[in-house]
Design a protein around this nucleic acid. Structure first.
Lengths: 280, 280
DNA sequence: ATGTAGTCGCTACAGGGGTAACTACTAAAT
DNA sequence: ATTTAGTAGTTACCCCTGTAGCGACTACAT
């Protein structure tokens, strides 16, 4: 990946990133030389360097002709970390009073972006008192393993329907007869979480910043979504007990059974069912 | 301090900060209501909210009229921390190859800003093999205590001339007969650090981002600057051994002695001596 | 009519990115 | 000794985007 992009994430401008990288390649250099090797126009190099010097990211030597040298990368990153830490602490202090809010229980809240969704999932798991039902892919399970373990240790019943092999040392895992096909059908991996039968989070989490999910306590949504998971548990139990019989009727795996209904790429969409469609 | 400013540090724009704070005060709210209570113009509130929703900083509910609700502050900060952490890790990986640099030993490097100076000081201390001489104020000593302790534990001789009471459980501390007067004379608290008699960092550190310092291995500068500290040690020893005699000659404290020379606010400036004057 | 909800269009300004041209110094090349 | 070319530094513009701020306009419900 592009080093310049990464530096931009740390609040460098493109010119600043180019100048700094040029200095890492070779130093010390004059402004003119930096301009040549970095591609930053000579006309801009001095203000760019002045900015970097002011923020302590490069050092300057006042010879007859000024020379510049980069602060070593490790030191640079430590400085930035330190500053970020202070910003976070100040923000925490400033916002700690606004502790919490009365969310209307009748609303459905949309959550955008994988980070935000996983964050919400973790918080909801932490709030669990009695039972957690969760349907989740192996790829995403690791990220919330710790939160689930804490819940389980606090006496919360943890039931996991897993797509792909998940091995937790707590709770009960019910592997789902999944196939790649199912993932493609719904456009990605999803998470369905139901906590204490009164709060659910559901949505697709494999699309990075385009992932979308819903979070609600609305009873008439919590009920059916919880049931989705419960049904998957039933089916699992049925398969365990009577696989031969069922396969004789419906074929070698459950995907074929699904096709007997109107499910499928053009059928009744899971996303639509959850109210997740990107409006109209 | 202003909460909006703090949020701006976390990459909120002013409008975004105002909208988010309004939602913390009361939620859920419609876009219109947020506009009223936040002061963000109605004409801008929807794009501002769209940005916040996209980054997962507020949640949205698609009722007949859209409602917005903030992600709780703690969760917000955790998300941002997570992202920052990832940015730092990527930057570390991207820059780890450029680890070293060939600095011309004849140059004097200017360092701007307290953070950058303290960072440089710490690195130089870490590089010490034999002896560290440092002149430092009580207020600044704490920040580098850990680095100095590590050096002392590795067998490096640590000699500290302290302004104000410093109590380290390692090295040797020589309290300086300092007065407020001296600080004012030179415009702030300074640090003078000399490592292994071949590298020095010296400058003023009490002016925040306006603090400036020099770092050099230039032998003809390292020598006299190291001597500055050594002389302070000599004077300390002289005072310990013969305080009565000396005070009989020069008055009750050393500040009076200083005045017998051309030192003082209008005299020969320490900053100038170190080449720290902000050019001409 | 009034309050609520949302949209469109415009101005102004700052910062970042990009080009051209102008001065001045220095060091070979003629 | 003068020209030429490269090095070094500076000034003046240009465009574009994002943010901030203002006003007006639609729509709908009570």
């Amino acid at each position: 990946m592009d080093t310049i992009k990464i530096l931009k994430e740390l609040n460098f401008t493109e010119y600043e990133a180019k100048a700094y990288l040029a200095l890492l390649e070779k130093s010390p250099l004059s402004g003119y030389a930096i301009s040549l090797s970095s591609g930053v126009p000579r006309s801009k190099i001095y203000e760019v360097l002045a900015g970097l010097v002011e923020r302590g990211e490069v050092m300057m030597s006042h010879e007859n002709t000024a020379l510049y040298s980069p602060v070593p990368p490790k030191e640079l990153i430590n400085m930035k970390k330190q500053r970020a830490k202070i910003s976070f602490e100040m923000a925490e202090k400033a916002l700690e009073n606004y502790s919490y809010l009365s969310l209307n229980r009748e609303n459905i809240w949309n959550i955008s972006g994988r980070d935000a969704i996983m964050s919400r999932v973790k918080e909801v798991i932490k709030s669990a008192k009695e039972r957690i039902l969760i349907e989740i892919w192996r790829e995403d399970a690791e990220e919330i393993e710790e939160e689930l373990r804490q819940a389980a240790n606090s006496g919360v019943e943890v039931l996991v329907v897993s797509y792909g092999e998940i091995t937790f040392d707590f709770g009960q895992i019910y592997p789902h007869d999944a196939s790649e096909e199912i993932t493609e059908e719904y456009g990605g991996r999803w998470i369905i979480l139901s906590v204490d039968d009164h709060e659910v989070v559901a949505g697709i989490v494999s699309l990075g910043d385009d992932s979308r999910a819903a979070w609600t306590m609305h009873p008439s949504l919590v009920m059916p979504i919880t049931e989705v998971i419960v049904h998957d548990l039933y089916i699992h139990e049925m398969l365990v007990a009577h696989r031969e019989t069922l396969e004789a009727s419906f074929g070698p795996n459950l995907v074929d059974l699904r096709k007997r209904f109107n499910f499928g790429p053009s059928g009744y969409s899971f996303a639509a069912k959850l109210g997740l469609v990107n409006k109209g």
